[in-house]
Simulated assay, not measured.
Amino acid sequence: MTQLATPAFSPLRLEERSLAYKAGAVLFGTIGLAVASRIEVPMVPVPVTMQTFAICMVGALYGARMGMITVLAWLGQAMIGLPVLAGGAGGLAHFAGPTGGYLAAFPLMALMVGWLAERGWNHSRPLLAFTSMLAANLFCLALGGAWLASLIGLEKAIALGVTPFILGGVLKSALGSASLVALNRGWTKKTN
Rank of each mutant, 00 (worst) to 15 (best):
G59R: 01
L61W: 04
A64D: 04
A64Y: 01
R65L: 14
M66A: 13
G67N: 00
G67I: 08
M68T: 05
I69Y: 03
I69S: 04
L72H: 07
Q77M: 15
A78V: 06
A78R: 04
A78D: 00
M79T: 11
G81W: 07
P83L: 06
P83F: 08
L85E: 02
G88W: 06
F95N: 04
F95S: 01
G97C: 11
G97P: 08
L103R: 05
L103S: 01
L103W: 02
A104P: 07
A105V: 00
A105W: 00
F106E: 00
P107W: 05
M112Q: 12
G114S: 03
W115M: 13
L116K: 00
H123S: 15
H123W: 15
S124H: 15
S124L: 13
P126V: 09
S132G: 12
M133I: 05
A135N: 11
A135Q: 08
F139M: 14
C140G: 01
C140N: 11
A142W: 10
S150T: 15
G153P: 08
L154E: 12
K156Q: 14
A157H: 09
A157N: 06
A157D: 01
I158Q: 11
A159F: 11
A159W: 11
A159G: 15
L160W: 12
L160G: 06
G161Y: 02
V162N: 01
V162I: 15
L171N: 12
K172I: 02
K172M: 12
A178L: 14
